[in-house]
């Protein structure tokens, strides 16, 4: 299982409090998970596809082609607005 976290406005586009996704033949990379989430929820999919978002895998920034392992924590980060 991979735990998926959605921050900022992305979080409000999914009604589930937390998302866990089972890895498999068709779900091996960050991009695969993004595709699956988009198929389930096109509005979320459109927001996730925006190029200014960052992707964090176990709290390190990665690219969408990165491979996933069971137990990973995957987070989608829209542009930050702290300070």
């Amino acid at each position: 299982m991979v735990k998926v976290l959605l921050f900022g406005r992305l979080g409000e586009l999914d009604s589930r409090g937390s998302i866990s996704i089972e890895l498999g033949d068709s779900i091996q990379t960050v991009a695969d998970i993004r595709k699956l989430l988009s198929e389930e929820n096109p509005i979320l999919g459109k927001a996730l596809a925006e190029p200014q978002n960052l992707i964090a895998l176990n709290q390190n920034i990665v690219n969408a082609d990165h491979n996933l392992s069971a137990g990973d924590e995957l987070a989608f980060l829209p542009p930050v607005t702290g300070g």
Partner: peptide
């Protein structure tokens, strides 16, 4: 301060009355 605003993982949501919106960088 400049780096905090653009690099650290914080997100602000502003509410006024019935309106609420996430801020943009």
């Amino acid at each position: 301060m400049d780096y905090l605003k653009t690099k650290a993982t914080f997100w602000k949501k502003e509410s006024s009355g019935s309106d609420a919106k996430w801020l943009e960088m």
